[in-house]
């Protein structure tokens, strides 16, 4: 019984990885001539989605407890606007601002987590209010688009390249080019590894699974359910703030409409990666692959060139629908056993 349960959950992860490999291979075959098969184009998916990877890790932790956090997209917009206005208008140092952004993230998460864990309000309603609050605050800070140009440290970070020692290719001018990653990718990979280890080996990580699996038995086991939930939301907002900094390093600007619908991307990535929406089951490795699948879809749509960008939304929604139904079927099968 126990073994079968684990198999079922691993199956979801396997489906995800297989889907990614299949999709990427198909992309390589169809768009190979447009440079899709290069190692760099794969790394570009990572570079473009580094912020999303951080956010999805946090989202996975929240979803493990059976909750949801849809404030992430707006929070990122607020972070970016805060960084941009802070550097350009208030002329503050970027190190201080980045630290402040992380503090804002923790406070934001504390308020949301308190409402959800201690006041027993539905996570969706609280984070929806948080989403509108953050989006409105972005407009409160500044309604125009602000580009970051003046801060040397920040622009330096943004343009930093880390070349890989292998996989180089010769471009049209005959120069050997090494594939590279940005600093944001390194941050994202560190976050994934840390969260993976945390979920696997720490007390907090295990109690996240326990709370999501069954709140009552977790409470009877002596776990502090409310505190665990609170911590999950704080962690999510904190990781979102890290993601926000990564996002800002990518776009180097703050606008009020930035990262709209990012929460959808994060949730669908986590769901596609095998995280159950009812909680208790999930894995950041799956979430990472979920993000990669999302990234591949949008890259494929962009590489095609003829399709409208909303196609990537539609395809993601179809995939999301497929995985949600699959999960529900699995849950029914498990119940019957």
């Amino acid at each position: 019984m126990n073994r079968k349960k684990i198999n079922g959950n691993n199956l979801l992860l396997l489906i995800t990885i297989a889907l990614f490999v299949l999709m990427y291979a198909a992309g390589c075959i169809v768009y190979g001539s447009k440079g899709f098969a290069n190692l760099q184009s794969f790394l570009n998916i990572l570079i473009n989605n580094a912020g999303l990877i951080c956010v999805t890790c946090g989202m996975t932790c929240v979803m493990l407890t059976g909750g949801i956090d849809i404030s992430v997209g707006s929070l990122i917009a607020m972070d970016c606007m805060f960084l941009a206005v802070g550097m350009e208008t208030w002329k503050m140092g970027s190190q201080v601002l980045m630290f402040l952004v992380l503090v804002i993230g923790v406070v934001f998460g504390l308020v949301q987590g308190f409402c959800i864990a201690y006041l027993d309000i539905q996570p969706f309603i609280v984070t929806m209010a948080g989403m509108f609050f953050a989006r409105g605050m972005t407009a409160m800070i500044c309604t125009q688009q602000v580009s970051i140009v003046s801060d040397k440290f920040f622009t330096g970070l943004s343009s930093m390249k880390f070349s890989l020692p292998f996989g180089g290719y010769v471009n049209k001018k005959g120069i050997l080019q090494m594939p590279y990653v940005r600093i944001t990718v390194i941050v994202a990979i560190i976050v994934v590894v840390l969260i993976f280890l945390m979920l696997k080996y720490t007390r907090f990580g295990r109690s996240l699974y326990a709370v999501g699996g069954n709140q009552q038995s977790a409470a009877l086991m002596g776990l502090n359910v409310k505190k665990t939930k609170l911590k999950a939301y704080v962690l999510s907002s904190f990781l979102t703030s890290i993601g926000g900094i990564c996002f800002c390093l990518n776009t180097m600007a703050g606008t009020t409409t930035q990262a709209t619908g990012l929460e959808m991307d994060a949730i669908s990535s986590a769901v596609i990666g095998g995280t159950l929406l009812t909680g208790g089951v999930g894995n950041v490795v799956g979430s990472l692959f979920g993000v990669l699948i999302n990234g591949t879809i949008s890259t494929l749509v962009k590489t095609n060139g003829k399709l409208i960008s909303s196609w990537s939304n539609i395809v993601t929604a179809i995939l999301l629908c497929f995985f949600i139904v699959l999960q529900s079927v699995f849950a029914k099968v498990k119940e019957k056993k």
Binding site: V126, F132, F133, R135, G136, A139, M140
Partner: peptide
């Protein structure tokens, strides 16, 4: 663009009042 801030505050106040 700024109006959502006030609406969000109203939502939170209402749901907090209704919370068990």
């Amino acid at each position: 663009a700024q109006a959502p801030v006030f609406k969000a505050v109203v939502v939170i106040i209402i749901v907090v009042i209704q919370a068990e």
